[in-house]
Design a protein around this nucleic acid. Structure first.
Lengths: 202, 202
DNA sequence: GTCTATATAAAGATAGAC
DNA sequence: GTCTATCTTTATATAGAC
């Protein structure tokens, strides 16, 4: 095992920035936070990202969205042919990842950015993530697997639902987050009247 | 109508801060943003809030949480005896208000606060908001109005679901946000197999 | 590529006049 | 109560040495 498996400084900067931006948001993270976490001074970041903090953030977010798009797509495909399997795959993916905090990105982080940049990132979210879920739902509806519904509305709702699991206070997490996600998926599929779930009361 | 209905400066500061903090988060709002929006200099804020920005934020958040608690409670009571009515009331309330962004508050805004302050605010959220929804669900389950379910999990999920409506891109909002919220409530109640909803296809 | 040093701007906070 | 003025710290960003 050579030491060549260590990413170059640019990639390490992107990785560090991704974690910090995801956890604290654009304004709360300083370039020094990022650079010092990979053993550089903040000035070195301007060599790799001449556009400064905004360029770094935009690059990080785009990479993050694309990674989520690819991971989500694979997880859906691995879920098998049923809608339930596909949605469980999607839930597993989002639960396995740090929270995307799309609300914060849209409403806070991108507020001070050039509209073109902000627009582009939000379009990517829609195209690679929301649309992917929407298509799954629309296919199930069109094939009659489920009844009439609004796939666009439901896709956003499902994402909010699953991502909200990341905010569950630790002392409330009695079970595996993934099991909780699956239970919420079953609620969406069958409603809370659903009797055949594995859940056995409080 | 006397001019006495104008709130005092302290209240106007809290009001302005509430809107700004809600929209942009703790770090993105400056004391000058708040003071200038009510025609004061930022130094004047230190007369009303000697503890500075952190005190102001904590006061604003506590007031906001209590207002949501009261509004939510009233909305649930006005929803009538059925679970569906109560949940529709809750949805109407959250949709009528600016987004709470509890995720951002818990994960970003409060990260740099004293643990005791952060803990206290999160406890208030649980006690006044999540618990209120949880109780409604538990009562419906215990009375047999719905089947077995986990009220704690569902309360958080419902909140995430409804709050996610605030992030729906404007060009996607084909209908009234409240109607969309009601449709999501019906999904939770009956699942997407539900055929008797008013929804009439894409 | 990364550093040190520095320029510049903005923010929280305080002192003291009015 | 609110202001002006100032202090201190911290951030982004740049220049130039190595």
């Amino acid at each position: 095992m050579s030491d060549e498996d260590r990413p170059d400084a640019r990639t390490r900067a992107l990785d560090a920035a991704e974690g910090l931006f995801a956890a604290k948001g654009f304004d709360s993270v300083t370039l020094r936070d990022i650079s010092s976490s990979i053993g550089l001074t903040h000035a070195a970041l301007y060599y790799h990202f001449p556009g400064g903090k905004e360029e770094l953030f935009a690059l990080v977010m785009e990479r993050n969205i694309r990674r989520h798009g690819a991971g989500l797509s694979a997880a859906i495909d691995e879920g098998g042919p049923s809608l339930r399997g596909k949605l469980r795959g999607a839930a597993s993916w989002f639960i396995s990842q740090p929270p995307m905090n799309l609300n914060r990105m849209a409403q806070s982080d991108l507020a001070a950015f050039e509209p073109a940049v902000a627009r582009r990132l939000m379009d990517l979210v829609y195209e690679l993530i929301l649309r992917r879920i929407q298509i799954v739902l629309a296919a199930a509806r069109d094939s009659g697997e489920v009844g009439p519904c609004d796939p666009g509305l439901l896709a956003g709702g499902l994402l909010g639902l699953i991502e909200s699991l990341h905010s569950v206070p630790v002392h409330i997490v009695k079970r595996d987050l993934c099991a909780m996600g699956f239970e919420l998926i079953d609620v969406v599929l069958k409603g809370i009247d659903y009797k055949e779930t594995g859940y056995a009361g409080s």
